[in-house]
Computed example of a mutant assay.
Amino acid sequence: MIEPLFLSPSFQPKIWGGRKLETVFNYQIPAGKIGEAWAISAHPHGPSKIQNGPLAGEELNEAFKLHPEYFGNPKEKVFPLLTKILDADASLSVQVHPDDEYAEVHEHELGKTECWYVIQADPDSYLIYGHHAKNRQELAEMINKGEWDQLLRKYPVKTGDFIYVPSGTIHALNKGIMVLETQQSSDTTYRLYDYDRVDEKTGEKRELHLQQSIDVTTVPNVDPKLNVKEQQRGASTFTTYIEAPISPFFSVWQWRIKDRQKLTHQRAPYTLASVIEGKGSLSVDGKDYPIQKGVHFIIPAQVSTWELAGDLQIIASEPNNK
């Protein structure tokens, strides 16, 4: 019998991280400042591990290569998506990510388009999102002069918001924000500004990537127009945050389950899911699996339908390859 693939996160220490992954999600995290849980990850910098079934003990990147039938025998060489939870106990660096073309040439991996569901945000929280430069020359001048107040846009956010961050968008999570991030499976980040912080281990400022940032930033800034759709099914609510053609790489949904609901794959042969609140059960081929806040799983291609029941808030995603 084919089972869902439950995954254990890989935890990433960060200069801006905190301890909320422990206090909010009850994860057993390493000591120190832990900024990210790579929850559904096949990236070599932090692969998650399958916990159950015949693939138990395998890292997701290994499973993707050795058992392609679980993923619909995909054409991609690497697992295309990465799901994270980020805890910004301090502000992240102001940064930008390249698209696929630039990343392939310069970094030999995928580009990085991403999106955030805001799990928690302190009162009066804001992001850095976008910029005010009219052309690339002005962008370069403002970056090289460090004119951050004039260049950067502040974007207020609150718990429950959804933000799409295409490659080429200058952005930063700020202190007091926790998000679930869905992104392309890439670890390439170009830093424009890091508040002159010093790395505790090296005693030096972290590396900046000014020329790469100037090269890849979209100029002028263009805010994507989302078409969020909400559907009521019984007592449950299904929200589509983003899908093709707005996002060429992934579709993302929120499932607010209040009763029993049957689901199927939508855009790809397999589905990624993260429980961010509540508890209930996942039923596959008549077998029930208890799930609760902090659980992450993949519904593989061999499973055509499944059921969710209970009181659950889930962020789900699929690569747009169907």
Score class of each variant (00 low, 15 high):
164 Y>P: 05
165 V>R: 02
166 P>R: 03
166 P>C: 08
167 S>K: 00
168 G>R: 00
170 I>L: 13
170 I>H: 03
171 H>Q: 14
172 A>M: 04
172 A>H: 02
174 N>L: 14
174 N>R: 06
174 N>K: 15
176 G>L: 07
176 G>P: 00
177 I>F: 03
178 M>G: 05
178 M>H: 08
180 L>V: 08
180 L>S: 04
180 L>D: 01
180 L>N: 11
181 E>D: 09
181 E>A: 02
182 T>S: 13
183 Q>I: 00
184 Q>C: 01
185 S>H: 01
186 S>Q: 05
187 D>P: 03
188 T>N: 02
188 T>L: 11
188 T>E: 10
188 T>I: 07
188 T>Q: 09
189 T>Y: 03
190 Y>S: 11
191 R>P: 05
192 L>Q: 10
192 L>M: 09
192 L>R: 09
193 Y>F: 15
193 Y>P: 14
193 Y>V: 09
195 Y>K: 05
195 Y>E: 04
195 Y>D: 02
196 D>W: 04
197 R>C: 12
198 V>S: 01
198 V>A: 08
198 V>L: 01
199 D>I: 08
199 D>L: 03
199 D>W: 11
200 E>S: 05
200 E>P: 13
201 K>N: 08
201 K>T: 15
201 K>D: 13
202 T>H: 00
202 T>E: 05
203 G>T: 05
203 G>C: 05
203 G>N: 07
204 E>T: 12
204 E>P: 02
204 E>G: 07
205 K>V: 00
206 R>C: 05
208 L>M: 03
209 H>S: 03
209 H>D: 08
209 H>A: 06
212 Q>R: 08
213 S>H: 06
213 S>K: 00
213 S>L: 06
214 I>F: 12
214 I>D: 04
214 I>K: 02
215 D>M: 08
215 D>I: 04
217 T>S: 06
217 T>C: 08
218 T>K: 01
218 T>D: 10
218 T>R: 06
218 T>N: 14
219 V>F: 06
219 V>C: 03
220 P>C: 02
220 P>G: 06
221 N>E: 13
221 N>V: 15
221 N>W: 12
222 V>F: 07
223 D>I: 01
224 P>F: 06
224 P>K: 01
225 K>W: 05
226 L>R: 10
226 L>W: 12
227 N>Y: 05
227 N>C: 06
228 V>E: 06
228 V>N: 10
228 V>K: 09
229 K>N: 15
230 E>G: 10
